[in-house]
Write a protein that binds this DNA or RNA. Structure first.
Length: 849
DNA sequence: TTAGGGTTAG
């Protein structure tokens, strides 16, 4: 299959609609004028009018004859008006007419096509001896169409045993029945038979069956395409089938190429063709071509068609440039008779677009009120809307509805429920929903693994990861990305390296998402060298790869490298996004590059069209504030185009703390508390500010205020990973089995570093106690305990990696520099803000933090 | 009347 350049602006030479190609039925002369009118309406395709006429006739007690009923049914099947077909069947049942095999076969076909295979089966069973070859054929086809391959093959065999020799339709259906992997060998036998009998040479339907056997059963698009190319006769259906299958199996570009070939070969696209190729446009986000196809649909009078409509809704939702859902909604509103597909397409469009979750829920309510029964896709998308809105109670009500309709154990519904709980932090409920799910698929596992990894429970995430491998499911890129992100959050490099080894074993080492997650993991675990190695080894880097490594260098304080990489990224033509600029500005902030920061901030919109958002303003406040330009920072805040949020003020308050400016700090704290009255961080920062300037009465007032408001300060803690186990320490912690050795080591360190010139900085004790007590308290800080434990538990050759949930204390920073000198060890500390690489008495932050 | 279509969770 050769891929042509993508047609984005090409004008397609569509042939004009050919009215003679639509099916016309002969008129019958009938004594009843109403019957004549009915036949005319059926022939003209005015089926809603026809049903009114039929109802009127029935009301008058004058039923049309069987031939007219049969005509009506065939037209309903032909135009896919299944609801109307069902109504015709109801009237037919009440007519007491004796049904012939043609009419009964039509009914089988009607119910087969609208997915009601039970009804089709029941009609077939009641036919008894009036069954003919077409009835059998229709039944084989019905089972094959409704994903019941085994039953289709059984019926096929049953038919032969009943003395019927299969015709080409039957072979086509039997071949399609082999469209799942389990029937590959049966498919081979039928294929051999079809070739031998010469059916393939003479019939297009058999070719269609073969195409599906290869594509659906084996994922073998190449063989399917060979069948297509060798077909002695083609028509619009065969072209459409091949286009649709290419699209469905991930070759949207090839599907569009083939569609162009079809048009150039003079075939006229119908509702099926347009549906397939519009879906291909949606997948490739080709809005212009999608719009051309939309105008074709209008020209062919297909805008009211629900299927074409669904594809257009999907295409507009995926391709809209300005994030607007108006074009999609317009298509939806034009569809007259909504069914479950059209409602679901619109709900899904809203949910996928993001920011339209309320609209999605409104539509779900609208759907229920019009008595359209939702399906598993509807529930899946609606639950996702609830998760986005954090509307757990509504989500639970929606799920109860799904339970009542029997969809609770369908994977995508149950997985959406798991995801909804996981995203709301209700990990236990997510786990319960996972446990009761009878048949879990990879997505079920990935969802719950991601939930554990996000909630820092890497042990449980690993147990489930092993289950995936034990069951032979094969972890995906998503599984690895979640596990790596979990390892990165805790900073367990040992775990991260183990996962890296499993990535290599799984064959996913070149996967872009996995590589991006590896870069982030190594960088966040303190090993920027390995992060850079992964980045260098990548074959194809995207903006996330570049942003991840730039963020890594920025956090580690290597601003020069970060900015060099940023320029290299621009040279390679990669467009920076909002996150890239957060990385670039934070690189400037971590080393105090005020002018460079201004330069980047000013050019982000003018040169690359990235509109600064709150985080970028906060970065600039950080750059200005930490460099000591507090008044410039406050001027900057006042000049912002929108009201500064708590993040901006928190950043400014941090700078006030570093530069000891109590007055501005008080103002900042007031602004934070105004916006987030229950956030303890502002109170703590302000209290620390008072403590550092020895205003103990104020410290005590703040503590009282916090107590009254029941605000609990996040306890500071530090941890190190030793032999794949995380050891966590709080202030003054004595709970570790090696506590005695740790405190002996701390005592020795204290003596040794004092000899080298360390003087405890008692300003960092935030309690009003005497000096001796203050010094003792300093040596109980969690980061010092973690360093001491690292020293006594690890090889002298390896760096010690310490992690802290809050910012590192100033005295600990100074003490650890002396410890690195006294012991000759490299100590890397990751705090809430950045990395400190401490070696031979120096820190990579150059005291700028 | 028997070959082709639409929406899906991490």
């Amino acid at each position: 299959m050769q891929s042509l350049p993508l047609p984005t602006t090409l004008k397609i030479p569509f042939p004009s609609p050919n009215p003679s190609s639509s099916l016309q039925f002969p008129s019958f002369t009938n004594p009843n004028p109403l019957t004549d009118r009915l036949i005319q309406e059926i022939n003209n395709g005015r089926l809603h009018k026809a049903i009114s006429t039929l109802e009127h006739m029935v009301h008058q007690g004058s039923h049309p004859d069987l031939q007219t009923y049969s005509l009506f049914l065939k037209k309903c099947i032909r135009t896919r008006s299944f609801d109307l077909g069902t109504l015709v069947h109801e009237k037919l049942t009440r007519s007491n007419l004796q049904l012939d095999s043609v009419t009964l076969n039509s009914l089988i076909s009607l119910y087969s096509k609208c997915g009601q295979w039970e009804k089709a089966t029941s009609i077939f069973q009641r036919m008894g001896s009036s069954r003919d070859l077409i009835s059998w054929s229709a039944m084989v086809s019905c089972f094959a169409n409704n994903n019941m391959g085994f039953r289709a093959l059984l019926t096929f065999v049953d038919m032969i045993e009943n003395g019927y020799y299969p015709n080409e339709y039957c072979f086509a259906a039997a071949t399609r029945a082999c469209s799942s992997a389990e029937f590959v060998s049966v498919g081979d036998s039928i294929f051999g038979f079809v070739i031998k009998t010469g059916y393939f040479e003479s019939d297009v339907c058999v070719g269609c069956g073969l195409i599906d056997m290869f594509v659906k059963g084996r994922g073998d698009l190449v063989s399917a395409f060979k069948v297509f190319e060798k077909m002695p006769e083609r028509n619009a259906v065969t072209w459409t089938l091949m286009i649709t299958r290419l699209m469905q199996f991930g070759c949207a570009g090839e599907a569009i190429d083939l569609f162009l070939d079809m048009i150039l070969s003079g075939y006229e696209p119908d509702r099926f063709t347009l549906s397939g190729v519009i879906s291909a446009c949606a997948n490739m986000e080709l809005l212009l071509l999608g719009q051309q196809l939309h105008s074709q649909a209008i020209k062919h009078g297909l805008t009211l068609d629900r299927c074409v409509g669904c594809c257009l809704i999907n295409m507009y939702a995926k391709c809209s440039v300005d994030g607007s859902m108006c074009p999609a909604r317009k298509v939806f509103d034009q569809i007259l008779d909504h069914n479950v597909f059209s409602w679901t397409a619109m709900i899904t469009g809203y949910v996928q677009k993001g920011g339209y979750d309320e609209e999605a829920l409104d539509l779900f309510r609208g759907m229920i009120s019009t008595h359209v029964i939702p399906n598993h896709f509807t529930f899946s998308s609606t639950l996702k809307a609830c998760a986005n809105l954090a509307a757990l109670r509504i989500g639970e009500q929606v799920f109860t509805h799904a339970v009542k309709l029997g969809f609770s154990s369908v994977n995508c519904v149950a997985n959406s429920l798991i995801s909804m709980y996981a995203r709301s932090g209700r990990i236990d409920d997510a786990r319960k929903a996972f446990d009761i799910l009878f048949e879990k698929n990879l997505i079920s596992y990935n969802t719950v693994i991601d939930a554990y990894a996000t909630n820092l429970n890497s042990e449980e995430a690993f147990v489930l990861f092993n289950e995936i491998e034990d069951q032979g499911m094969g972890a995906s890129a998503f599984t690895f990305a979640s596990l790596l992100s979990g390892a990165a959050s805790i900073g367990t490099i040992g775990k991260g390296e183990q996962i890296h080894a499993r990535v290599i074993k799984s064959g996913l080492k070149l996967n872009q998402s996995v590589c991006n997650a590896l870069i982030s993991m190594y960088s966040r675990c303190g090993n920027i060298e390995s992060a850079f190695q992964v980045f260098e080894d990548m074959e194809h880097r995207n903006v996330i790869s570049w942003t991840s490594i730039i963020t890594g260098f920025a956090k580690h304080g290597f601003a020069t490298q970060a900015l060099e990489l940023f320029h290299k990224m621009l040279q390679e033509g990669i467009r920076p996004n909002e996150v890239t600029y957060i990385a670039v500005l934070s690189a400037c902030s971590h080393v105090g590059l005020v002018n460079e920061g201004w330069k980047q901030f000013k050019s982000m919109y003018t040169e690359h069209g990235v509109i600064p958002r709150m985080e970028h303003y906060a970065c600039m406040v950080d750059i200005l504030g930490r460099s000591g330009s507090l008044s410039e920072a406050i001027q900057f805040i006042n000049s912002m185009p929108y009201k500064a949020d708590a993040l901006v003020w928190r950043t400014f308050l941090g700078a006030c703390r570093v530069h000891g400016n109590v007055e501005l700090g008080k103002h900042a704290a007031k602004m934070i508390i105004e916006q987030e009255p229950h956030d303890p961080a502002a109170y703590i920062l302000l209290s620390n500010l008072y403590a550092s300037t020895s205003q103990w009465d104020e410290v005590s007032n703040i503590r009282k205020a916090m107590k009254e408001k029941n605000l609990i300060k996040e306890a500071g803690c530090s941890w190190v990973e030793v032999e794949n186990k995380v050891h966590k320490f709080y202030v003054g912690d004595t709970s570790h089995p090696k506590a005695e050795e740790i405190y002996d080591e701390l005592q020795n360190l204290s003596l040794n570093i004092k000899k080298l010139g360390y003087v405890p900085n008692l300003d960092f004790v935030l309690h009003d106690v005497d000096e001796e007590q203050k010094e003792k308290l300093l040596f109980q800080h969690s980061e010092k305990i973690a360093v001491a434990f690292g020293l006594i538990s690890t090889s002298k050759m390896k760096p010690i990696r310490v992690f802290k949930n809050l910012r590192i204390c100033g005295d600990c920073h100074s003490a650890i520099k002396y410890i690195s000198m006294a012991t000759g060890r490299e100590i890397i500390v990751r705090d809430a803000n950045r990395f400190h690489h401490i070696k031979d008495g120096r820190c990579s932050c150059n005291e700028y933090w």
